[in-house]
Structures are given as C-alpha cells and as structure tokens.
Design a binder for these strands. Structure first.
Lengths: 212, 212
DNA sequence: TTGACATTCAAACAACTGTTTTATACATAT
DNA sequence: ATATGTATAAAACAGTTGTTTGAATGTCAA
C-alpha cells in the first residue's frame, strides 16, 4: 500500500522533536508551531496524526519514554546475570549504574529523567499509564529481588521505600543538575557523574542495610 | 501618607495567589488574568506593581519562598539547641523532620517544595538568587555541623553530596506524592508522612555513616 | 485512466496571551 | 482649592495559542 520513502516519517519526526521540546520546556512551554517547525512538518500535522497536542504528549511517553525505560531495565537485568549469587551490594550498584549511566546517551538520559520529573511534579494522563505499565511492575520485580537479601523482619513497604529512595537521588542528581553544580561549584562532566553514581550506590547500600 | 485600609493589600494578595498558582501549574501554565482574578484585582495590577509577569514570579520567591525557607532552617536550628552534645543521628533526624513536617502547614510545604522542584527542573533567574541567598549558606552551615561527626577522612564533597541526598528524598517523597501513593497504593495522610520521615532519617543515618 | 485514500499545505478561525493606554477615583499635602 | 501621588478600572493593543478548513498534492489498486 504505502511505499514512498517519506511516508510515515513525519509522525516519527514529530514524536522525536516533541519529546526533546517537551522535556526542555514542558507541555505548556512549547507551542505546536514550534514542534512542527522543528520536525519540518506543516502546522496541521500534529492534529492530523494525533488529534490534538495533548494526545501527542501522551504518545511521546508511550512511543519514546516507555521503550527507553525498558532498555534501562534490560540493562539492569543483564548486569545481574552471572554465575555468582546475587548480593545486596551488587543489585544496588547495578541499579544506580543502570539509571545514572546505563544504555542511554547522556542526552537521552537527561530527557528521560526530565520528562519523568515533570510528570511527577504535575501528573497528567501519561503518569497513569507509566505507573501501570512501567513503574509498578519494575518496583515489584526489584523488591522481589531484594526481599530475600534484606535484613529479616523488614517491612514490605520499607523495602519499597528503600528502592524509591534510590530513585529519588538518581532523579535529583540528574534533573537537578543545575542546582547540583551550582552548589558543588563544578562542571557536570563524566568525572562528576562517576562520582555521583558511586556516592549513590555507597549511600544506598548502607542505607538499605541500616533499615533493620 | 497612606492610611486607607485596602492600600497595599492588592500587592500582597497578588503574591499570595501567584505563589499558589505558580506552584500548581508552573510559570507558563498560569495567565496573568488567572492570577488577578484569583486575587480580586484588575488585570493591569500585575504590571502596575511588578512591571511584568516574570518579575512577579521572581518576587514570589523573594517575598514568600525565602521567608518560608528561613522558618524551616530556624526550626531545624531550634531542634538542635539543647544541653546534650550533637550526634549525627540527632542532626539528620532533625533535618529531615524540619523539611518533612516542620513549621509549615501541609499546604505550605507542598507549595514550597513544588516551587523548588520546578526551579530545579527548569531554572530561571529565581534559582540564581535562591542558590546565593539560601541554598549555599544552608548547605555550608550543615556541612560545618556534620564535619566533626562524620567518619574521618571523609571527602568534603562527599559530605555535601550526603546532605543533598537527604534533600533528594525529601523533595521526591513530597512533590512526587502522586507517584509515591500510586506505587504504594495508599493515601498520603499523616501516618504515611510520619512513616516517610522515619524512613528517610533511618536510611540517611546509615547512608551517611557508610560513606567511609 | 479512474476512483479512493493518505498526506501536505497555506490560510483562516476564535480564543487567549502579556502589556499598554486612558480615564477615574481618592486621600493627602501645600 | 489646588496640585500630587497612589490606586483601581475598562478597554484596546498586537501577537500567539490550539485547532479547523478546503484545496492541492502524491500514491496506490482496480
């Protein structure tokens, strides 16, 4: 039916550019004109493909954010595959590494975390979907891994909170990079990222083990 | 000179309502008309008192956010005043308590953290001022307190990161309440807040002590 | 070639944006 | 009484917003 090279590419370009701009300036901070201009499409194409601006926003999460999240989770699982038995330290270190460095490029990672941070600060229809499809299953998987290793007698919810605390720091140090560098008085380069990742891992391991 | 009862109250009402709305929907998400309507003022009053919308935004931080931050910090210092010598546990517990419960009402606290979270995700002229006037001095004060108690040989920057990690969790569990409750599957009530505060304190104490 | 469908485009829509203007009221100080 | 500075008010400004329209493409199967 459709064979032309350009066919269907507009929709993808729209999703690409919309993701970048939404992450940068938020839903209200970007205009449809800005998105279509960046994507090299006509103004009407957003409404043609997605019905309206809000649907495009949700679709950005569905078609871009979710796959990226799956890549991170896969990267995390891969790091745990090995002959040696799982240790608490190994799990947490792999976890924070997967989110702070992981399979994404520096640019992708910032976009990913920023979109997530925006949703948390001002939830839309997208968060409902993310919680259902990604966040809840992943946290379940994670706590299932941690449970047998955690100090015995540890509350189930305490375990969940521990995992969320790690994410809190990852998100904070990632999307709050401006504040971080301003406070530390240094550049946000690879050296700092490495340091941050080590810090979070070390902090979290002791933190989790102290939850008894 | 001015005696009229209503005199000067418009400006205060504008700041009040602007803070609420900016926290709720962000700078671009709120219109000047919405603010003035909520404040019961004329449309032109924003430009009359503040010159333009952006100045109003910065002034919200200067006139509302900063004093609130000082109240929290004072509350923290007050909790540390006592005959017994300072312990690491005491400091961290007081710190997370001051931010998670502290002197603010539940409503104020959410506004406070949300405004901060927005600035971190998308820094404006306001963050420059906050970093200078509030964040940097407070973190300095905090690290000065922690230094003699921390495990010796601990990097200065490691100390700073530890303090920031605590804030990360406070911010996360506070402004990300929607995600938190959705994941935990429970209401964000006083019981949960208490639990969160205890968790962060416990987690952070072990975390900081493990940074050697 | 025909008809059907998918896609792009420029133009227009009404509604809303931040800001400015002009006029009016009011209390005070001279 | 007059002038002064402060505050409120309605109306208008020019520009942008998301969305819709209708015509013009191009592509495909019959």
């Amino acid at each position: 039916m459709r064979e032309k090279g350009v066919r269907g590419e507009s929709k993808e370009r729209l999703l690409d550019q919309a993701e970048v701009l939404f992450a940068q300036k938020g839903f209200e901070g970007v205009s449809v004109r800005e998105i279509t201009r960046a994507a090299g499409c006509n103004l009407a194409s957003v409404n043609y493909y997605f019905g309206n601006k809000e649907n495009l926003y949700v679709e950005v999460f569905q078609a871009r954010w979710v796959p990226r999240a799956r890549r991170i989770h896969d990267d995390f699982r891969q790091a745990l595959k090995g002959p040696e038995p799982l240790s608490l330290s190994h799990i947490i270190q792999s976890l924070s590494l997967a989110f702070l460095k992981g399979p994404l490029s520096e640019e992708e990672r910032r976009r990913h975390h920023q979109l997530m941070a925006r949703e948390m600060a001002q939830p839309t229809a997208a968060l409902e979907m993310l919680a259902e499809q990604i966040m809840r299953p992943f946290f379940r998987e994670l706590t299932d891994m941690l449970r047998p290793l955690a100090p015995e007698g540890l509350d189930e919810r305490e375990l969940m909170l521990g995992a969320m605390g790690i994410f809190a720091m990852v998100l904070y140090f990632s999307f709050g990079r401006v504040a971080v560098t301003r406070l530390l008085g240094c550049e946000y380069d690879d050296a700092l990222r490495k340091r941050l990742s080590e810090h979070i891992a070390g902090f979290s391991i002791s933190g989790l083990e102290g939850l008894k």
